[in-house]
Simulated assay, not measured.
Amino acid sequence: MAVDPTRVLVTNLAAFSPAQTIELVGRAGVAKGNTRPDKVFLSGVSAGCLLSFAGAAVLSCNASPWYAENAPGLLRLIEAIIFPIGFVMVT
């Protein structure tokens, strides 16, 4: 029998039970809680810089007066697409 590469079997997906998920999240919290303070501070500064970059990108997109008058819905859609990029860059 030939294997179809476009088909995904549910048994092949890596899934955790709720108890396993709670354990993994708890371990991640303990590891983050034991992080050195200087590393936490630098991570926070880096995250702030990335989010401010995304905010600046949204503001520069919002600065176009033609879109503000003629297509405000499109302008809001573009902003809604651009700003989450900052959150993606943080993770």
Rank of each mutant, 00 (worst) to 15 (best):
M1A: 04
V3L: 10
D4W: 02
D4Y: 02
P5F: 04
T6G: 09
R7S: 03
R7M: 03
V8H: 13
V8W: 09
V8P: 07
L9F: 10
L9R: 15
V10T: 06
V10H: 08
T11F: 07
T11N: 11
N12W: 12
L13E: 02
A14I: 09
A14G: 13
A14S: 14
A14R: 15
A15E: 09
A15N: 08
A15M: 09
A15G: 06
A15W: 09
F16L: 12
F16H: 13
S17D: 11
P18T: 03
A19S: 04
A19R: 09
A19I: 06
T21R: 15
I22Y: 09
I22T: 11
L24T: 08
L24Y: 13
V25A: 14
V25K: 12
V25F: 14
G26I: 02
A28C: 05
A28T: 07
A28W: 06
G29C: 10
G29V: 14
V30R: 15
A31Y: 04
K32L: 13
G33H: 00
N34L: 11
N34R: 09
T35E: 00
R36A: 15
R36T: 15
P37T: 05
K39R: 10
K39G: 09
K39V: 15
V40T: 08
V40P: 02
L42S: 13
L42A: 15
L42M: 14
S43N: 12
S43L: 11
G44M: 01
G44N: 01
G44Y: 00
V45S: 02
S46T: 13
A47I: 04
A47L: 05
G48E: 01
G48K: 03
G48P: 03
C49P: 10
L50H: 03
L50K: 11
L51Y: 01
S52K: 12
S52E: 08
S52T: 11
S52R: 11
F53V: 14
G55V: 10
A56D: 05
A57Y: 03
V58D: 02
V58H: 03
V58W: 06
L59M: 06
S60A: 05
S60P: 01
S60I: 06
C61F: 06
C61M: 07
C61Q: 04
N62V: 12
A63M: 06
A63T: 02
A63S: 06
P65V: 00
W66D: 10
Y67M: 13
A68L: 15
A68Y: 10
E69S: 14
N70A: 10
P72T: 02
G73T: 04
G73W: 05
G73E: 02
L74T: 03
L74N: 02
L75P: 00
R76C: 08
R76F: 13
E79C: 14
E79V: 09
I81A: 05
I81G: 04
I82W: 08
F83Q: 01
F83M: 04
P84C: 03
P84F: 04
F87Q: 04
F87M: 07
V88W: 07
V88N: 07
V88M: 10
M89T: 05
V90S: 01
V90W: 00
V90A: 02
V90G: 01
T91A: 14
T91C: 14
T91R: 15
